[in-house]
Nucleic acid binder design. Structure first.
Lengths: 202, 202
DNA sequence: ACCTGAACACCGTTCAAGT
DNA sequence: ACCTGAACACCGTTCAAGT
């Protein structure tokens, strides 16, 4: 708040912002504490006034990335009010597209050993702790879909693992160029979603 | 072959072996060229006689890891001869279990930026280049399943993305403790596979 | 939960030199 | 496609000191 500090009013926020820029520019492996500090025009040890270690900085950058990701998902959901099935499938497509366009986010969010210790138990946690988190957004969409389909043979838990797993796996395989497909991946994904309504049908 | 070298008869193979041991012991981030060299009792620069740089060493370790992984998949396939549907679903379960039990392999194989440039185009490559590779094993299982089910509305390409994506995504979410489930994940996976026969049914 | 500069242990990589 | 040791640029982290 005060802008009469040694150098910055809000170094902590700037470190996070520059960290995300560095991720975009140099990829996950280029993300070093010293480079982020230099990008903020501050000494290499200054980040230690705001974060216990690199792990804490990376966790903060992750939180920012998750928030960006969540906005993409919510945008897709909001485009189809009152249609839980369409919401779920369009959100899945937004999910995949996001990571195909930002593959370094995948590395930051899902493979860094800078681990978020807390396992994301969104089902049993109070709303204020989980809202704004993409996985909670995903779970909400699954639950709306579950309620809208009274013939659904699967529990929310099961739809969650199925739907999230499918979308997540496809995102990773395509983003990492792991599969080689004849057709455009989005064409195939749309076909799969249409056939399965994004869930198994029996 | 000759064992009268400066130090080793087969340093290259030993570097790969020790690299994989180090991955198990210290995780993907602990995998350093210098540590691998030290584990082989050799100077820090000795690996450069066998690999252009760290990237090449990591690629060789990856190849070894993929071969171990492939053995697990083939074992599952071989347990159910003449039942392509069961082969596909049991292989999927073996796939998930393998990564849940060896999460550092996930990091090595799918999120390292030590990239295998060649995108795995297993559909159009000669057999001798692709055999022994887990993704080829997966593709083979998909194709056998496709041939066995004449009512299958999906192309092999589409089944591949669907089946591999689902299995891969679930493996990552569970191995990284990303989902919190009420029941055991294998119970849910088995139920999903039984319902969908590992593919969408229309 | 302010910021710096010197220092330490670790890393990948290069290069001249040695069996 | 042999192996080593010194050296360089980079990294995370600690610590005594300075606004």
């Amino acid at each position: 708040m005060s802008d009469n500090n040694y150098h910055h009013g809000d170094l902590k926020a700037e470190l996070i912002r520059e960290g995300l820029l560095l991720l975009d520019k140099e990829g996950y492996d280029g993300l070093s504490l010293r480079k982020v500090a230099k990008a903020c025009g501050v000494s290499q040890t200054a980040p230690y006034r705001h974060f216990k270690d690199k792990n804490e900085l990376v966790e903060a950058i992750k939180a920012e990335a998750l928030s960006n990701f969540n906005k993409h998902l919510e945008q897709a959901v909001d485009a189809y009010p009152d249609d839980p099935e369409k919401q779920l499938s369009e959100m899945g497509i937004a999910y995949i597209k996001f990571f195909v366009e930002n593959p370094e986010y995948l590395r930051l969010l899902f493979l860094s050993n800078y681990q978020n210790k807390s396992c994301a138990d969104f089902t049993n946690q109070p709303e204020h702790l989980t809202s704004g988190h993409p996985f909670k957004t995903y779970l909400n969409a699954v639950e709306r879909y579950y309620k809208s389909d009274t013939n659904q043979p699967l529990e929310p838990d099961e739809i969650m693992l199925y739907s999230w797993g499918l979308v997540h796996g496809i995102a990773i395989l395509v983003a990492n160029n792991e599969v080689k497909l004849q057709k455009d991946y989005l064409t195939i994904v749309r076909k799969l979603f249409e056939m399965g309504n994004n869930t198994i049908q029996s």
